[in-house]
């Protein structure tokens, strides 16, 4: 059985984010782009220290991507007439986030970044389907699924942590099902926040994730 082990949503102002990193690590994370900082703070909040060495896969999507960093890079390349500062280029490469957080999450064995192509839509359905498939295969012990975004004024992250096998205090289990008739939620970037509301409301026993590009099976959560 695949269990949901954490549901988390975080919001930061740009000024607060480095402080949140310091609070999580006990030290600053130098030369880390905002997406990396968001990833680190969220991942550590989802996984208690005793689970950080377990084989883990990180799947994260983003609408904004490294937009601000890309604008800086474009300005340097097109307007500056010189080569960019290496850090400015590295900050536009979201894959680097995983490399920078691996030392704090030693079990992190692979990561995938899935940039989104439309505002207001997300692909939690695909992230969770891959997570369920890979957990059932035994490819890893836990999967972190995330939506990370940052803009000039705010940064936000939404997280779902999944684990193979039962864990104490898991609020729900997940599975892929053919037909769902109960409550459903749309596949939006803030889906974890809506899922948390459903868990807190304690009404229907199951909840499905409705994706406009649904595959043959649907992700269904069952309250435990």
């Amino acid at each position: 059985m695949i269990n949901l082990t954490a549901v988390l949503s975080q919001d930061f102002t740009p000024a607060d984010l480095p402080a949140a990193v310091r609070a999580a690590l006990g030290k600053p994370l130098r030369r880390a782009a905002p997406l990396t900082q968001l990833a680190l703070v969220g991942a550590l909040a989802c996984l208690p220290p005793e689970r950080r060495s377990r084989p883990t896969i990180l799947l994260w999507q983003s609408t904004s991507g490294p937009r601000l960093e890309t604008l800086t890079l474009l300005d340097e390349v097109c307007s500056g007439g010189a080569e960019p500062m290496p850090y400015d280029f590295l900050a536009t490469q979201p894959a680097i986030a995983a490399a920078q957080i691996q030392s704090f999450l030693p079990g992190l064995q692979t990561a995938m970044h899935l940039p989104l192509d439309s505002e207001g839509m997300a692909n939690w359905s695909l992230l969770l389907s891959l997570a369920i498939v890979w957990l059932n295969e035994g490819r890893c012990a836990q999967v972190l699924c995330a939506q990370l975004d940052h803009a000039a004024e705010a940064a936000s992250s939404h997280w779902l942590a999944l684990s193979r096998g039962p864990l104490e205090n898991s609020p729900a289990s997940l599975q892929l099902v053919k037909d769902t008739a109960g409550t459903s939620l749309p596949d939006t970037p803030d889906f974890p926040a809506r899922l948390a509301e459903w868990l807190a409301a304690n009404d229907s026993q199951t909840l499905s994730l409705h994706s406009p590009v649904a595959m043959k099976l649907t992700v269904e959560f069952t309250r435990l």
């Binding site: 991507g65 490294p66 937009r67 474009l74 097109c78 192509d117």
Partner: peptide
């Protein structure tokens, strides 16, 4: 410039 990047990165 000005670089009109779309809101969705992909």
């Amino acid at each position: 410039a000005p670089f009109d990047l779309p809101a969705a990165t992909a």
